[in-house]
Every structure is written in C-alpha cells, then in structure tokens.
C-alpha cells in the first residue's frame, strides 16, 4: 500500500528531476554549464547530508571522499586509460572504501572529537596528495579529457566535452543520488538514522546497533561523495589536490546548512544559491571567503534550519 505521503514525495522528487532535465533546453549556454556543475556539487552535498543532516554526524573532512572519487577515477583514466564507466565505478569504490576504513576508528570517537578527527584526516589526505606529487600531480593538477575522448569515441561516440553530454551525465548522477537519499530518508533505515541524531543513547536502548548504522551512513555518504568527485573529474576534466583542501570540506557543510540540513532537497537548493551568490558577487569583489565565512555566521545566528527546513516547518510538514 502506498500512503498519500509517499505518493506526494515520489511525485515531487520526480517532478524536480524532470524539471532539471527540461531546463537544459531552456537555459542559455552560460547557465547551462553552471547547472551541470551545480548538479554534481549538489550530489556531493547530498552525500554529506546523509551523514550530517540525517545521522547528525558533522564531518569537517568530507573533501577526502570527494577527492578519493576524483583521484580514483582520474588516475585510472590518466595512467591506465580506463573508460569513463569503469573509472566512475572505481571512483565510487575509492570513496566507499576510504569511508569504510576511516569509519572503523573515527566512529569510536563521539561528539566534538569526531569533528576534530574528520578535519584532521581530511587535511592528512590533502597532504598525502601533495606528498606523493610524482604520482598524483596534486601540486599542479591534471586534465583527463585527452585520454578520455580518444577512448570513448571508439565506443558509442559521445564526447565528454560536448555540453549536452556533460549536462545529461551530470543529471543522471544527480538523479541517482537524489533517488538514493530520498529512498533512505523515507525508509525504516532513515528513521533509525534520525533517531541516532535525536538521541543515540535511547536508540541503543531500543536495541539498535547504532555503531553499525552510523558506519552505514558514513559509507553511503562516502560513496555518494566519491561518485560526485568521479563525475567532476570526468565531466569537467580537471583533477587537483585543491579539491581535497579544507575549503572543499566546508563547502558541503555550508551548502547543506543553507539549503536545510536533513531535507532531501536542501543540498540542491543550498548549492544553487551559494553558487550564484559567489558567481554574482565575483563581479565586484574577489574576496569570496568573506561570503563563505559571513554566510556561515549568519546561518548559525539567525537561520539554523536553512531554506528547505523553513519551507518544511511552515508549509509542508510532509517533506522528507
């Protein structure tokens, strides 16, 4: 039996996915490219949201999973001439395996220790990319398009430099991630994750193995972040260590907070608004870190529930 709420959720999310697909025929070229980028970055934020928004574990090192996906895919294309599909899968595997191993000891800590440990390891991953510079080329970064195109033309004949292919591939990744996170949020597993966020002790008292659930959330989160990183490398053709820096761990936090933590659509809204905020202000100031820092302060002080959180509280209590 499908309840009314479930039907509403499914219809709304399908409509959003459909709307994004249609937008490619309407938008001018500049915003067309932007939206492709926003969808990939929003995927990263959705991965983050599963851990932070639903499970209540704030990570300050999520760039390491994004970078794992990015380098997992990028290095395979660069050195081993992998195809885009195989590289994408490897990127996800890189993200999920890093998350699985990391979770085993990081989740032993609780509260703020977890935050510190994630930030520390995020930074250690960044430094590792720089340290093995001969292999990772982390210092300068590298492009994958040269190796990717030649290979892919032998296949179906899609070129990744083609904006339409780029947009639709980004759309597919986004749609997949949104479906997964909505499915999780609406499922019994999602309810347990929220229970862990609200009160971990009581959840354990009810007989749930909270460590396993937190570990699962971290793995899913790492997999989606890895997928976003891999897609970013393949579609926008640049791989560099700067994507593993602390700023790229703070971005998903900012996007998720702005859009509304613990809402399925929040990451998309937050990423889009922030992207255009920085894009519009870049015309008169290069000091975009002011905007990042100022937004974080403003959100904490005056708007902790975020945009979609406000929408849910005021108009649509049924939003997952």
């Amino acid at each position: 039996m499908i309840s009314g709420r479930t039907r509403r959720i499914v219809v709304l999310h399908l409509a959003i996915i459909g709307l994004l697909f249609v937008l490619q025929f309407v938008l001018p070229a500049y915003h067309h490219t932007n939206l492709a980028r926003i969808m990939v970055l929003a995927t990263f934020a959705m991965g983050y949201n599963i851990l932070f928004g639903y499970t209540g574990l704030m990570s300050l090192g999520h760039a390491m999973f994004f970078a794992a996906g990015m380098y997992g895919a990028g290095l395979c294309v660069y050195y081993l001439q992998f195809g885009a599909g195989a590289a994408f899968v490897l990127g996800i595997l890189a993200g999920v395996s890093l998350a699985a191993v990391f979770g085993l000891f990081a989740l032993r800590t609780t509260g703020v220790s977890f935050l510190i440990v994630t930030m520390m390891f995020g930074q250690a991953c960044y430094l590792t990319l720089l340290y093995f510079n001969e292999i990772t080329l982390g210092d300068q970064g590298f492009t994958v398009s040269g190796n990717l195109q030649a290979l892919h033309q032998a296949g179906v004949g899609f070129a990744y430099s083609d904006p339409d292919v780029k947009f639709n591939a980004a759309w597919l990744v986004f749609a997949g991630a949104l479906s997964i996170s909505t499915a999780i949020a609406a499922s019994p597993i999602g309810r347990v994750l929220i229970a862990v966020r609200v009160n971990e002790e009581r959840t354990r008292l009810l007989g749930y193995n909270t460590f396993a659930y937190k570990w699962l959330a971290l793995c899913v989160s790492g997999a989606i972040a890895g997928a976003a990183g891999a897609a970013y490398a393949l579609l926008f053709s640049y791989v560099g260590a700067s994507f593993a820096s602390i700023l790229y761990s703070i971005y998903p936090l900012l996007w998720t907070l702005l859009g509304g933590a613990g809402t399925t659509l929040g990451p998309l809204v937050g990423t889009g608004v922030m992207f255009y905020l920085i894009d519009l202000t870049s015309g008169w100031t290069a000091a975009y870190l002011f905007i990042v820092g100022g937004s974080l302060l403003a959100l904490v002080l005056w708007f902790p529930q975020g945009l979609m959180g406000a929408v849910r509280a005021r108009w649509a209590r049924w939003l997952p």
Partner: peptide
C-alpha cells in the same frame, strides 16, 4: 556544533 560552524565562519573572515 553551532560554535564550530561559527568559528569556521570566523576563520574565513579573518583569513580573507
């Protein structure tokens, strides 16, 4: 948690 987010904001404002 709010303090951590706020001090991250402070970090970027000071850095910039």
């Amino acid at each position: 948690e709010s303090t951590i987010v706020a001090t991250i904001g402070l970090l970027y404002i000071v850095q910039q």
